[in-house]
Simulated scan of single mutants.
Amino acid sequence: MSYDAIDLYAGAGGWDQAARQLGLSTVGLEIWHDACVTAVRAGHPRIRCDIATYPTAPFAGVPGVIASPPCQPWSNAGKQLGKLDQPRVHDLVDRMAAGDDRWQDMPWEDDRSHHAAQPTRWVRDLMPEWAAFEQVPEVLPLWEHIGRVLRGWGYDVWTGKLCAADYGVPQTRVRAVLIASRVRRVSQPTPTHYDPERYGYGLFGTPWVTMAEALGWSGGDVLQSRRDSPKWVAEHGARENRTASSPAPTITGEAFRWKLSVGARSNATVRDLDQPAATILCSRPGNLLWTLQTGANTELGAGRVERYERTTDRPAPTVIGNTGRWKVAAGERPVDLAEAAVLQSFPADYPWHGNKTSTFQQVGNAVPPGLGAPVLAVAAGVPAAARMDLAA
């Protein structure tokens, strides 16, 4: 079977979902077993392999190459040892551009770092009509370097940073993107949504999609996230709150530790339900916590005040005549997998495979389909009128 594109480091299928919306067929290469099972269950073909050693010849003639190499060595959420490897990765790009694919003889601080250069080999060997790469913002200088190589091979190239919320994803994830084509001019995908807090309502177009809109939450619910890492606390403060009137923060592999809350704390940054989420990350344990807070403050008799806190999986405290004075107070529940997936613009019933840690990491690692679709539309030259509803 022929495909419109190969998807390197394909994971659970973010790019594949985006391609499907555009009527493009893909086959993914991925080494992670759970992610491969998830993708196949969703109808996305997989070859389980090491992309760095797998031969390119079987894919001769494929029109497109998509790549999202591992981000952990580069991401601010990880140990960032890959930053020490950055000069070597740039050297490897030049090596591969010249036909030398040896990376094993190079000293790596993080043994995953070389993967960021591997897409160079695949484009060199296959010379596809188009290519699309995505990574964390810190990888943008590398994409610019690879872009200069591709221009030397006759490609038109655009590189830059894109915010997922600008394309209808209920999350403020920012990613570095490379789009290249040797058969057409390419440019930044035209945003379809805008930040009403920055530009005001009434601007031509559509306001950012909020957590409330994406998840069907009621007004007033708050998304709270807390980083327990001492380094994060020292640099950014102990707690970040977002009400559901905003996009979600970046969804991470630790999103199952986040909890949904009602109400906000004084030392927090707040996003309402009518705003998108922040970026969903895949990061080390303990980084983030979200909470749904419920419960009651109850007045019992003249001057007597007692406080009851009940989570939503328990009955309410005794209902008395002055129940109207009860207020929402601290109770909580975790964000579930379907909610994290929806904030990442996957269908709520996407068939994730694996344990809790694995499935949330798959969500956090994925390219949001809602961001991938406009990138692929530009790269593959798919007319805007041909784009399908991402919710379909």
Results as ranks from 00 to 15, higher is better:
Thr243Ile: 11
Val378His: 09
Pro141Lys: 13
Arg88Ala: 09
Ala316Glu: 15
Leu29Val: 06
Thr357Asn: 09
Gly147Gln: 05
Gly295Lys: 06
Leu203Asn: 13
Gly160Val: 07
Ser245Tyr: 03
Gly160Ser: 09
Pro196Arg: 13
Glu197Phe: 09
Phe256Asn: 07
Ala165Gly: 11
Gly152Arg: 14
Ile146His: 02
Gln362His: 05
Met96Thr: 06
Gly99Thr: 11
Trp122Ile: 05
Ser246Gln: 14
Gly295His: 06
Asn355Tyr: 04
Trp352Glu: 10
Gly82Ile: 00
Val149Gly: 03
Thr243Phe: 06
Thr243Cys: 10
Gln21Thr: 09
Val378Ile: 15
Leu281His: 04
Phe59His: 01
Lys79Ala: 09
Met106Gly: 00
Val209Ala: 12
Pro45Val: 01
Ala238Asp: 14
Gly253Met: 03
Gln135Met: 06
Val40Pro: 00
Trp32Asp: 14
Asp7Thr: 12
Gln21Arg: 11
Arg41Ala: 09
Ile51Gly: 01
Val149Trp: 14
Arg271Ile: 08
Pro368Gly: 10
Gly82Asn: 00
Ser113Pro: 12
His90Glu: 13
Arg121Leu: 11
Asn355Gln: 10
Ala366Arg: 06
Arg112Cys: 04
Gly82Phe: 00
Gln72Trp: 00
Arg41Ser: 04
Arg307Ala: 14
Trp74Glu: 00
Trp326Ser: 08
Ala164Thr: 12
Gly23Gln: 05
Thr269Tyr: 04
Asp110Trp: 00
Ala18Thr: 07
Ala341Pro: 10
Trp258Lys: 07
Gln86Ser: 07
Val186Gln: 08
Leu142Ile: 11
Gly43Pro: 02
Gly303Tyr: 03
Pro369Met: 12
Ala57Tyr: 02
Ser181Glu: 06
Glu240Gly: 13
Gly286Phe: 03
Ala244Val: 15
Arg284Trp: 00
Val342Asp: 02
Trp258Arg: 13
Ala57Pro: 00
Glu129His: 14
Thr192Val: 10
Ala57Met: 04
Ala5Gln: 04
Tyr350Ile: 02
Val186Leu: 08
Thr291His: 11
Arg184Pro: 09
Trp32Ala: 08
Gln72Asn: 07
Asp94Gly: 15
Leu281Thr: 12
Leu150Gln: 11
Ala392Leu: 10
Met127Val: 05
Asp85Val: 01
Glu254Leu: 01
Asn365Gly: 02
Arg314Cys: 07
Pro230Phe: 10
Val40Lys: 08
Gln188Ser: 15
Pro70Gln: 02
Gly11Leu: 02
Gly205Trp: 03
Gly295Leu: 06
Ser113Ile: 01
Thr53His: 08
Lys161Thr: 14
Ala164Ile: 12
Cys36Asn: 08
Ala164Cys: 12
Val375Asp: 02
Ser225Leu: 13
Val222Cys: 14
Pro128Leu: 06
Gln80Asp: 01
Thr26Val: 15
Thr252Asp: 10
Val40Trp: 00
Ser2Ala: 13
Arg307Gly: 11
Leu84Met: 03
Tyr3Val: 15
Pro45Trp: 00
Lys259Leu: 06
Trp217Cys: 02
Val186Gly: 09
Thr269Ala: 13
Asp221Leu: 11
Glu213Tyr: 00
Glu332Thr: 13
Pro207Leu: 03
Gly295Glu: 12
Tyr167Gly: 10
Leu22Glu: 05
Ala77Val: 13
Gln275Met: 06
Gln86Ile: 07
Ala373Asn: 03
Met1Cys: 03
Leu81Asn: 07
Ile320Asp: 14
Leu376Gln: 11
Ala238Asn: 08
Gly64Thr: 09
Asp228Gly: 12
